[in-house]
Structures are given as C-alpha cells and as structure tokens.
Amino acid sequence: MRNKAPRVRVRAALRVWQRNATVYKRTWKLNILPNFFEPFLYLLGMGLGLGAYITEMEGMPYINFIAPGLLISSIMWGATLETTYNVFVKMNFDRIYDGILSTPINPKDLALGELFWGATRGTIYGSAFLSILFLFGMGLHWGILLIFPMIFIIGFMFATIGLLFTSMIKEIELFNYFFTLFLTPLFLFSGIFFPLSQLPQAVQIIAWFTPLYHGVELSRGIFNQVWGVELLGHFAWIIGLTLLNTLVVLRAIHKRLYN
C-alpha cells in the first residue's frame, strides 16, 4: 500500500539539530581543537615547505594560492564525516533513530535535521580554518564577509552528498570507498594545489562536474577579490546541486527508514 510521504518540516528538523547540538556541547572543547591544528599544519607544511620551491602560482604567493581551497576542503571533510560515519552509527548501531522516529519526527524531518547539522559541523571546521588564515594575514578585507554564507552552503552541499551515500549502503566498511575513491580524488584534482588549466582538457571537463572544484574557485575568487560573473556561475552550480541532492536524499532516507 502506498501513501504520500509526509512533507518535511523545518521545525521538526531543527529538533534533531538541537539534539545533536546538545550532544556536541558536552565535548565541543575536545572536538574543536584539531580543527585549529589542521590548517596550521597544512599551511606550515605545504605553504612554507612546498612554497620554498614553488614561490608563485598564478601570480600570487603559493600559500595564498592554496589557502582558499584548503578552507573549502576542510568544510568538505567536516560535513561528510558527520553525515557518513556519525549518521550510520546513529541509524544502525545506537538505535538513536528508532527512538526519534517513534515521536512526531518523520524520516524526512530527521534527514533534513542531519543535513543542517552536517552543514553546521562543516561550518565549524571552516570557521576554525578561516580564523587561522586571518591570523596569517590572509583575506583581511570586507569582501571576505561573503565567505561566511558560502561556508554554510558548501557545508550543506557536502552534507547531502555524504548522506546520499549513507542512505545507499548497509555496511560501514563501504565508507572507505567513498573516502578514498571519491573524496580523496576530489581533494587532489579540484584545483586546490595547482590550476586545472595545466591538466588535459578531459580532466577539466570532469572537474566541472564535481562539487569541490566550484567551491574552490568561488573561495579563491572571494579571497583574492576577483569579482566576476564566473563566481555567480560557480555559486549557481552549488545551489543547484544542493537543492537537487536535498530532494533526492530526503526521499532516499524516507525509503530507507520507513519500510
């Protein structure tokens, strides 16, 4: 017998977000510290180490070239870790969702709540990273204010990507494939460390279809205040994928949890 899946409700989703925030509040001090070390180590190792050999990239110091992209990749790791491993454990091992779904919260509300929370975790990662960049004197201009909403939106986008994968798998080991075969290539080939224009045309075309690339380009444009219509294009791409993926993933989670 088929019924119409009830519509998703933002208020119910925020209840789930609040639950995660309550749990996070208990351990946030422990949780957040690595988020500051990570960019520090990257900038030291890549910027100063590699930077000693590669002094300039596209007309800017190497460290300035990679920093905006690394910021976006940290959002990617933060948001996807949340909606992959953490959601999987809550769904399959800890039976947290069994408890939540026996209240007025429905599967789609739950999914949207986890997306908000994934975006929030991405934002926490990104903000920590950004604060270190500021400390290094990067991005200190008014235009940088635009990066804040971008951090959240990009976090949301990656949350939907992680959750979609989670909705499809039954074994936690399969996340290894997601991370090594999907996210790591994104990390390496989305123009964070070198401009894609150096790569064959085919690779550039593939890159256009991947989410991290657009985030990196958008971030680099904002950091270096290169305002152009391309930035709008990247932004539209990100919004488009996020909306589409949200619709798909809400349905997928409904199907997974209501059967």
Partner: peptide
C-alpha cells in the same frame, strides 16, 4: 521499543528533555 533505543550520548535527564523537544 523491544530493544532499548535510549540515547546513549545523553545523560538521564537529557534523555527526557531532548525527547520532550521532539513533541
């Protein structure tokens, strides 16, 4: 539920308070 679905990430009182929010 048959298998306990308590929230092990929360303490006793928060299990109740967080649940109350769902309603």
């Amino acid at each position: 539920t048959q298998d306990d679905s308590l929230d092990y990430d929360l303490n006793v009182i928060n299990n109740l308070l967080v649940y109350a929010r769902y309603y």
